[in-house]
């Protein structure tokens, strides 16, 4: 019963957050100075009026907002103002799978590299191995994706020729992008894993396990790991949000036509409908991820449910 309540509460919260972001982006876009048609030089007055009418910009703001929400519920994000002849739905359905693969592989790489390093460093705490690994991880955190990405591109694409320099279809450049994203978060995850594993390893039940004569590896993986991994799971939600931000950089550097590219382009073109559409999709992705993370965390550590 308590679990059902917890899940429902979280769902409600996520929904409310989504509504907040949709409202915020909508009104920001409309209140901002300058319009989507102002860039096109010398548009005749009557034509401008006609265009505003066509896209519904002549109606009062609140009416526009209501119409927008109505369309949104039906899954219609409207025409893209910047990409003539395309709807926002088309642009997003083209970019989303690309970004999804990039982010998913990136997150996978981050976990596969980060968690073992963290566990290993915690198992060898305060040895040169530990210090060495943690210093490398700190360097990884301080070297931002926008430094790593061009350097990886230079070495592995241009010099060694193992990967393509840029592009998506039939191109291997996206893998370099995923590695770039993954490396940064693996450094974070490694530090996080080490810290929480050390916390768990200093607790009484671990001492008991040790006193019973269990092998160190059994203690590490059977007893401590579940507790030690919980903060890492909690971090996955924010990590995804960060990954989306990082993907803007990676998609720019490697010329990958993902959602991030479309968003940045839409932002600089003031393509209102596309901005609102991409932000809504980003927000839904992040909220779903946060929700899953919360549920997973409550399953791993039942104490989080009651908020203690």
């Amino acid at each position: 019963m308590e679990s059902v309540r917890f899940v429902l509460l979280r769902l409600l919260q996520s929904f409310f957050a989504l509504l907040c972001i949709i409202t915020l982006t909508f009104f920001l876009a409309r209140l901002a100075p300058g319009g989507p048609f102002l860039d096109e030089k010398a548009v005749p007055e009557h034509l401008l009026e006609q265009m505003n009418k066509k896209y519904g910009f002549d109606k009062p703001l609140v009416v526009q907002y209501g119409l927008y929400l109505g369309q949104l519920i039906q899954g219609d994000l409207g025409p893209s103002l910047g990409n003539k002849g395309f709807t926002v739905n088309e642009v997003i359905s083209e970019g989303l799978p690309v970004s999804f693969i990039l982010g998913f592989v990136g997150l996978l790489i981050a976990l596969v590299i980060g968690v073992p390093i963290g566990v290993f460093a915690a198992a060898n705490r305060n040895t040169p191995v530990d210090y060495g690994l943690m210093t490398v991880a700190m360097i990884g955190i301080c070297l931002p994706t926008f430094v790593i990405a061009p350097i990886l591109g230079e070495i592995f694409a241009l010099k060694l020729g193992w990967f393509d320099v840029a592009g998506w279809e039939g191109s291997t450049a996206w893998f370099l992008g995923a590695v770039t994203l993954g490396l940064y978060y693996s450094a974070y995850i490694a530090r996080l894993t080490r810290g929480s594993m050390l916390d768990v390893l200093s607790q009484d039940f671990v001492r008991t396990a040790r006193a019973k004569g269990l092998t160190p590896s059994k203690i590490l993986f059977k007893h401590a790991f579940r507790g030690g991994i919980t903060p890492v799971v909690a971090y996955l939600g924010p990590a995804l949000a960060g990954l989306i931000g990082g993907s803007f950089v990676v998609e720019t550097v490697f010329g990958i036509p993902g959602l991030g590219q479309h968003f940045i382009k839409a932002a600089s073109n003031r393509d209102y409908t596309l901005i609102n559409g991409t932000v809504t999709v980003f927000a839904i992705l992040i909220l779903i991820m946060n929700f899953l993370v919360d549920v997973l965390q409550a399953w791993l550590d039942p104490r989080t449910k009651t908020g203690n």
């Binding site: 915020l24 920001l28 960060g242 989306i244 927000a283």
Partner: peptide
Amino acid sequence: RIVDILYALPFMIIVIILTTYFG
């Protein structure tokens, strides 16, 4: 609760929107 909800918003994106709209 407000903080919880704000936590769920993609901030990088909000900052980008703000900077593009307001110069």
